[in-house]
């Protein structure tokens, strides 16, 4: 270990850590599935940024919000 450079030591620190996990492997699987659902499904299909997807620039976005804030019944 002493002969290895710092990057290699950091790599093997994580590598050995992940390799020796038991319950941790199940938890990582849960994290990965969850993150996949969040970013590849929810963010993509259910959470478009309303202002970014409907307007091209900040000027248009600002004008739209001002219109929303000042519109009369």
């Amino acid at each position: 270990m002493r002969d290895r450079n710092i990057l290699s030591r950091v790599f093997y620190f994580y590598y050995d850590g992940f390799k020796s996990m038991t319950l941790g492997k199940t938890l990582w699987l849960i994290i990965l599935i969850k993150v996949f659902i969040m970013f590849a499904v929810l963010k993509l299909f259910f959470f478009p940024n309303f202002l970014n997807s409907n307007f091209d620039n900040d000027k248009e976005r600002g004008n739209y919000v001002i219109e929303q804030l000042t519109k009369q019944p």
Partner: peptide, 20 residues
């Protein structure tokens, strides 16, 4: 592990549901 990133959805909702 189970709780991590659940808060990120709140940030998604700011942009989608609470844009004003």
């Amino acid at each position: 592990a189970i709780g991590i990133a659940t808060g990120l959805i709140l940030e998604f909702e700011f942009g989608t549901n609470w844009s004003n």
